[in-house]
Design a protein around this nucleic acid. Structure first.
Length: 256
DNA sequence: ATGGCTTAGTTCCTAAGA
């Protein structure tokens, strides 16, 4: 079973690319981020026509997450994270598909740092860790898939120097990610490529794609029960080079 | 990057992204 995390950067602008991806790759589960679409304008009919059921948590213009399942309707379990009532960003949705618990995560970017956006990022990571702990306690297969906006190691970026002041690479961001992993999660892509050097994002600017100047920020975390079923992980990098591509590439893990 | 693209919306400029 192939589980994908894909930050589409606008589902309306990316719909032909997304449908093409679903048709060509036939993934079983797809977690989308950055829909930039309200709940009402989510293109449910087009996705259903491609053979996928969906649940989504939209927001006008920014954020927005969804979970797609091939040939079935995901059963929604939760939208949003507890712990901050005034938070209206649509960044978390969780559902059950085929006995597997799946979350689609769009973690705050946090730039510029320091500042209120960075503080929000760190608070959100703590709220995520609280939910992740609850999920681990269920002792069942769980995948936390999404755009974490954290470059977790120095070998996860084309240039440490270019990114050193960025919120994605601050020690506080990395420590929060490590605290999450330390609960017992497995970073799929890191397991498959322990030496790093694998990117999931390439900026639209400054010829980043042409220079292969990317970094790894889209992660699929597995509970021990899911990690037992790990087969392979990778990035469908080719889709970043296509016409009207997102700045992220689909990132995936395969489970038995 | 003091922002060189791209997207969406109060659309012909501004905000946000990473």
């Amino acid at each position: 079973m192939k589980i994908v995390s894909y930050n589409v950067n606008g589902i309306k602008a990316r719909l032909p690319r997304l449908v093409e991806y679903l048709t060509e790759q036939q993934p079983d589960i797809v977690c989308l981020q950055e829909l930039k679409s309200s709940d009402e304008t989510f293109p449910e009919a087009d996705i259903r026509a491609a053979g996928y059921g969906a649940v989504w948590h939209g927001q006008k213009a920014f954020n927005g997450v969804a979970i797609l399942a091939k040939g079935s309707d995901p059963i929604e379990r939760q939208r949003g994270l507890a712990g901050e009532d005034e938070d209206e960003h649509s960044r978390y949705i969780e559902a059950e598909v085929d006995g597997l618990v799946v979350a689609s995560i769009y973690l705050p970017n946090g730039n510029p740092q320091p500042g209120p956006k960075f503080d929000y990022k760190l608070r959100w990571m703590e709220r995520l860790r609280t939910r992740a702990g609850e999920l681990l306690a269920e002792e069942r297969p769980v995948a936390l898939a999404g755009d974490y906006n954290v470059i977790t190691n120095d070998d996860d970026t084309f240039s440490v120097r270019a990114m050193q002041d960025d919120a994605l690479m601050q020690p506080q961001s990395r420590e929060a990610y490590r605290r999450l992993l330390a609960q017992g999660w497995t970073d799929s892509l890191r397991t498959r490529f322990p030496g790093g050097g694998v990117w999931t994002f390439w900026d639209y600017q400054a010829g980043a794609w042409q220079r292969d100047a990317g970094f790894r920020i889209d992660h699929l975390l597995l509970s021990p029960e899911a990690a037992d079923r790990f087969v392979d992980a990778g990035v469908d990098k080719e889709y970043r080079g296509r016409e009207k591509a997102s700045d992220h590439a689909p990132t995936w893990v395969r489970l038995s």
